[in-house]
Design a binder for these strands. Structure first.
Lengths: 332, 332
DNA sequence: TTGAAAGCGCTAACAC
DNA sequence: GTGTTAGCGCTTTCAA
């Protein structure tokens, strides 16, 4: 039924090895190469990647495991990873964990069975911790989230510094009662919380923080509760794009205004943040750079397995928009 | 280095065949099964999927080829497809074409090399047309876009009816000068344009249409041009979520207001459409249903290769929001 | 039930 | 340069 390399060899009047060599750019005379190409065309031959991978013992494939590719942050990172992988002749298997540790385990195991050459991974806190014990048969580069001393290469944002930028900006605009909303599943939330808290204290302000599930709904419910109980702060900082959207939805649903009733700042410069309300003040992450760097770290790790573990920390940029406008003119 | 089924067999004191049977749920005595499981654990054995696929001649894998998974429409569809595939014990390889026919060809060929059992595909117009001639070694189910008589199973939205709903709603709100903005790469754009035009004519209105590349930027540039030349219509219909976002961005950038200066309606009920301006009136597609149906069509096609080609047409729902509010009170 | 042996389609070692 | 041969890791006859 299916046409194999033997069929092509027969059609071209050469040996299977010659076909293999011709197709993989090995040393073959121009004459035979032409015959092979012709035979490939005539027979409609398609190499069987499973056979090739089995025989050559290399999958030419990497795994990319993220929480949710639809999160624009991961989208952009994934895009950069794929571009770099493609240049290096590697295929990418994409996996979405939905921040679910069981799915993470499953995919980590699946990647072993696929015999991937390496994995780029944005783990939950639960998994990041036990990654060292897992003895996977491939190297991992962590992105976005990285436990202290996880023993893995990693590329992350300077989360504490970014949170500090947001707090200082809000403070500069005259806001004093500032609350923070953080995701409870990732180390990112922890780090941003730490930066937020430290910056608030440094400014002599009382930090107020909530950890919620990393979903629009969870953030929306939390803010709705603040608003309906009448104990909302003057400003809120959301630690990622999902939470930020939940915040905005809750404010709209309550019929309140940004920033008059509640100022808003957050992470991730997603395209809709420009369109919502008066525009949202956000931290823009160097997403493409994160993806590129992760891929490079992985390639270098593959070349030099014994090299010391490396962690690359990148800085964010604060994009100021209307959602943090000073409500009352400040006194000089 | 890597541990194979032979190593497990040796460790368990049985033959490789018994290990294989034990792992795939074949007939094995409880005693040996326990020994095998123990040996698997001790050796850290992971089955090699390439070898399994090669030997069994079935990949247990389907391909899902879409324009861009980050487009929320495809995101939701993909999610439903993956859920159904998972239930059926199938893996999903996801491919993004960016509406680029060359990438489509490449992925179509790659799917052959991966020996997938089937493919779910949202093709560009260019590729949809020549799909019949391609003689791929797997069945295809088309989603979202489907050429007349492409000879493939398909599940699509009733695009003409949906466009008609939008036109009639705008007309009912008092708008008369209505322009349409359509994607130029897919049959979807064509069908929505046809529905739009027919509905406008039926109402005795002059349809005005523009076809642009399916990107935020293209839509933004087009609308910006209308606005700056001062010949903007009263209302605009955008034929998908990307174009819709471009429209909103352009209106904001020009400092105009929705719907007072330009009313807006479009396709795809993405989460940001609720947040932008006064909320955007959109057609909501039954995204999960589309994905589920596509997967079912594919599974049935695999069971019954000779069955007649089927096309499932699903209806959309019009979600009315502030972007199409009647500006002046209508006379009775 | 279990084991021995063959072979999926391919590439790489070795001979010529 | 080219062909012959062996074997990657697995499943699946076929015997026992």
């Amino acid at each position: 039924m299916t046409v194999s390399i033997k069929d092509v060899a027969r059609a071209a009047g050469v040996s299977p090895a010659t076909v293999s060599r011709a197709l993989s750019g090995g040393k073959v005379s121009a004459e035979l190469r032409a015959q092979v190409e012709d035979a490939v065309h005539r027979t409609g031959y398609r190499p069987n990647l499973s056979a090739r991978r089995l025989r050559s013992q290399e999958s030419q494939t990497i795994g990319l495991i993220v929480a949710d590719i639809c999160n624009p942050f991961f989208t952009a990172v994934a895009r950069a990873v794929e571009d770099e992988a493609y240049k290096a002749g590697l295929r990418v298997i994409l996996c979405n964990t939905d921040e679910n540790p069981e799915k993470e385990s499953m995919y980590l195991q699946l990647m072993e069975e696929e015999r991937v050459t390496g994995v780029i991974f944005a783990p939950t806190r639960a998994t990041a911790g036990r990654l060292g014990k897992l003895r996977l048969n491939y190297p991992i580069v962590l992105i976005d989230r990285a436990d202290i001393a996880s023993g893995q290469d990693a590329v992350v944002l300077d989360n504490a510094a970014a949170a500090t930028m947001l707090v200082e900006h809000l403070h500069g605009q005259g806001y004093r009662h500032i609350a923070g909303l953080f995701g409870n599943a990732s180390t990112t939330g922890i780090e941003r919380h730490a930066g937020f808290t430290a910056a608030m204290q440094r400014l002599g302000l009382q930090p107020e923080s909530r950890f919620v599930a990393p979903s629009i709904e969870a953030a929306e419910a939390e803010i709705a509760s603040w608003l309906s109980h009448g104990h909302a702060p003057e400003a809120v900082v959301a630690s990622n794009g999902l939470l930020l959207m939940g915040v905005v939805k809750a404010i709209r649903a309550a019929g309140k205004r940004i920033p008059e009733d509640l100022a808003v700042a957050g992470f991730d410069n997603e395209s809709w943040t420009e369109l919502a309300g008066p525009g949202l003040t956000v931290i823009e992450q160097p997403v493409a750079e994160i993806g590129r760097t992760a891929m490079h770290l992985l390639l270098e790790r593959l070349e030099t397995p014994g090299a010391p573990v490396r962690k690359v920390v990148l800085g964010g940029r604060c994009v100021v928009r209307g959602s943090t406008k000073a409500v009352q003119p400040l006194l000089a």
